[in-house]
Design a protein around this nucleic acid. Structure first.
Lengths: 220, 220
DNA sequence: TTGCAATTCAAACAGTTGTATGAAACTATC
DNA sequence: GATAGTTTCATACAACTGTTTGAATTGCAA
C-alpha cells in the first residue's frame, strides 16, 4: 500500500498546468515544482512524461463521457427511448461548456484540460483519441432516433457543427469578448449553451437536405 | 541586391513543414534540411526562428485578409453598399475552407499554415494576432448593414459560429470522415461551404433574439 | 585581376529537455 | 530493533534545441 500522496499531487499539478498553459511549454520540472515533489518522482510513478499525460487524458475522458452519457440516457428513458433533439444536443455540449466558461473561480481544470487535449495535438493523446469516436457514435444514434426522417449525413454534419460551436467558443472566448467589446457575455454560461443548442437544432431540423440547393454564390 | 534564393527556399520549406506537422515539433534543422540550406542561414536571413514564423504569418495573414475583403467589397458594391448575408458569410469562410479541404493535391499550404496558426498558440504569432480583430470587425460591419434589425450581440455570435464551423470542420475533417464512415464528403468543398453558410445564415436570421426564451433544459 | 561586401558553411556554444542512477530516507513486518 | 521493500532525493547523462562564431566561398564593381 503506497502513500499515493505524491502521485495525486503530480496529477493535480500537471492537469492544472496543462489546462493553463498547454502541452507545448510545460516541462517536467514545472510540474514537479508545482507539485512540490522531486524531479524523479514522475518517472518513478508514471514511467514517463507521455504516460503521465495519457493517464490524465484517459481518466478525464472517461469521466466526461460518463457525464454526457448520463444526461443522454436519462433524457431518452424519460422520453421512452426517444429524446427531443434539443435535449440530446444539450447533453452533448452542456457539460464541456459549463466546465470551461463562466466566472473564473468556478471553471473546472478538468474540462479545460480536455479542451486543450482536443485542440493541441500531442502524440500520447492522439494515440488514444480514437475511442472518442465510439462515444460520439452513441450520440449520433440518439440523434437518429430523434430525427428518423433526417438523412444520416445531415445528422453527422449537425453533430459536427454542434461540437464546432462549443469548442470554438471556448477556445476563442477571449477574442469574442474583445471583438464584441464585452457585449457577448461569456460568463452567462447557460445563455451560451442555449445559443449553441438553438443553432445546432436549427441546422438539424430546417427544411429537408436542401443545402445543395441553396443559392450557390459565385466562387471568386 | 541579394540572390534571395536561400531566403525564399527557407520560407517555402518552413511553411510546408509547419502546415503539415504543426509548430510544436518542427525544428530549425528540419527546415534547413528541407530547404537544402545551411543551418545558420535562418539566423542570417531572419534574425531568429521566431522572426521567421512572424514574417510567414504576417505575409499570409495579409494575403488571406485581402482575399476575403476583396470578395466582400465586390459583393457590397454590387448590392449598392449592402450585400446579402449569405454572400458576406461566403466571403468570410469560403477562401479558408477552399484552401484547406478538397482533394489532397490542390490544398494550399498557405491556408493550412494559417489554420495551424489559428489553432496552435505560439508566442510570436500570438503577439501579432490582435490585428485580426480589426479585420473581423469589417465583416461585423457588413453583417450589421445586411441585417439592420438584428441586435449587435446576435451579429457577433453569428460571426463567431460561422468561423467556428469552418475552422472546426477543417481541423477535425479526418475525424468527421471516420465518424460518418465516409458519408460526409469533405472533398466536395463547395458543399461544405454551402452547409456552413446555410447554418450560419439560419443562426443570424431565425426569429428575433429568442435564445434566452428557448426551453431551458434541466441542468443536470 | 584586385578588392570588398554579401553570403555560405562547419563547428562549437550554452541552455533546456526527459530520463537514469545509486545512495539516502522512510515504512512496515517480523 | 533488525530487515526488506518502497519511496524520495541530489545529481549526472545524453540528446536535442536555437544561436553564434570565424573562416571559407561567392558575386560583382573598379
Amino acid at each position: 500500500m503506497a502513500s499515493d500522496h505524491t502521485r495525486s499531487a503530480i496529477l493535480a499539478a500537471a492537469e492544472r498546468l496543462y489546462a493553463d498553459r498547454g502541452f507545448g511549454d510545460v516541462t517536467l520540472r514545472d510540474i514537479v515544482a508545482a507539485a512540490g515533489v522531486n524531479l524523479a518522482a514522475v518517472n518513478y510513478h508514471f514511467g514517463s512524461k507521455d504516460e503521465l499525460i495519457a493517464e490524465l487524458f484517459v481518466t478525464r475522458s472517461i469521466a466526461t463521457n460518463r457525464e454526457r452519457l448520463r444526461e443522454l440516457k436519462a433524457a431518452e428513458e424519460q422520453g421512452g427511448g426517444r429524446a427531443p433533439i434539443e435535449v440530446i444536443l444539450h447533453a452533448l455540449v452542456g457539460p464541456t461548456l459549463r466546465g470551461c466558461l463562466g466566472p473564473e473561480n468556478q471553471r473546472s481544470t478538468a474540462a479545460r484540460f480536455m479542451i486543450r487535449a482536443s485542440i493541441e495535438s500531442v502524440p500520447p493523446i492522439r494515440r488514444i483519441k480514437n475511442r472518442e469516436i465510439d462515444h460520439l457514435r452513441k450520440f449520433a444514434g440518439a440523434m437518429r432516433r430523434a430525427l428518423p426522417e433526417r438523412s444520416e449525413v445531415d445528422i453527422y454534419w449537425g453533430l459536427n457543427f454542434a461540437l464546432a460551436m462549443a469548442h470554438h467558443t471556448i477556445r476563442e472566448s477571449e477574442r469574442l469578448t474583445k471583438l464584441s467589446e464585452g457585449k457577448c457575455d461569456l460568463d452567462d454560461v447557460e445563455d451560451v449553451v442555449a445559443r449553441v443548442v438553438s443553432v445546432a437544432t436549427m441546422a438539424l431540423t430546417a427544411g429537408k437536405t436542401e443545402t445543395k440547393a441553396l443559392p450557390r454564390v459565385a466562387a471568386r
